[in-house]
């Protein structure tokens, strides 16, 4: 039989849940088995309590899984009712989470130097990628895009795990260079130092990143977002069109080789 998802249901307890930037919260949960099982770029789906009429889990990436402490950390943007209810969870509150989900960052090309490109809340799996690259001894730099200085998160985390060089871009110029991540990407790739780009952010941004990488012949992996109902391959609500047909983002993704994606 084809391989079923490795996801399982895990009870979790909130360790902390606090705002870290405008509209962005950081949740640390205790879920030891999940913390052991997650690999970078995978995701989890949280059953958020507080409204018995809202049944679908909220899928989230993670920035840090600590198998020693048995904790998982995620940063999430409060954009609607599910994430608003999640922000109301307090230390000691419990619920359950389904994970690990899907296919994480691939690193199949055995890169020498990697460029990370994050747009908005896409920073969450990018910080996880940074931790992983640091553990693997691969050098990396980052471009982090934000709306304004108030919505910026992740700079300190990237610095603490050993990023060499970070470029910040903001829509309004209040942090780093005014403009988009893609404005900074072209000059960054011109030097020919990078053999892999990992990116997560709005789909229009990732599409542009993928095009720029393709034009200069640099491998690129993208972490795609879709409306997910199950998160383990049973419903086909999450598909991404690829060169080999529609592939579920919750099983074949969320990370895809950018060359495979039909935008």
């Amino acid at each position: 039989m084809p391989t079923p998802s490795a996801a399982r249901i895990h009870e979790f307890e909130v360790v902390s849940n606090t705002p870290v930037a405008e509209g962005i919260w950081s949740l640390v949960m205790r879920a030891p088995k999940l913390a052991e099982g997650l690999s970078s770029g995978q995701f989890m789906s949280i059953a958020v309590p507080g409204d018995a009429t809202q049944l679908v889990r909220v899928p989230l990436s993670f920035s840090k899984a600590d198998p020693v402490k048995g904790t998982v950390e995620t940063e999430y943007a409060v954009v609607g009712d599910g994430t608003r209810r999640l922000s109301l969870m307090r230390p000691g509150d419990t619920s359950d989470v389904l994970g690990p989900g899907g296919h994480g960052w691939r690193l199949e090309s055995h890169p020498r130097r990697v460029l990370l490109v994050a747009g908005g809340i896409g920073i969450t799996p990018i910080v996880s990628a940074a931790r992983w690259l640091a553990r693997e001894g691969v050098e990396f730099d980052a471009i982090v895009g934000t709306k304004t200085v108030n919505t910026l998160w992740g700079f300190d985390e990237l610095m603490s795990v050993g990023v060499q060089h970070v470029v910040i871009t903001s829509d309004d110029g209040t942090a780093g260079d005014q403009g988009f991540t893609t404005d900074a990407l072209e000059p960054a790739l011109a030097g020919g130092e990078y053999d892999l780009v990992l990116t997560c952010g709005p789909e229009v941004m990732m599409h542009k990143v993928a095009d720029i990488c393709a034009a200069v012949g640099v491998a690129c992996e993208v972490s795609m977002e879709r409306m997910m109902t199950c998160g383990f391959g049973a419903c086909a609500t999450c598909v991404v069109p690829t060169r080999s047909g529609n592939v579920g983002a919750c099983m074949g993704g969320p990370v895809f080789d950018a060359k495979e994606v039909v935008w």
Partner: peptide, 19 residues
Amino acid sequence: PGNPKPRMCEVTSGVMNSV
């Protein structure tokens, strides 16, 4: 191949799909 995205939205006590 099914329909384009988005294929699901959540409503009160249910989901709608257009797979």
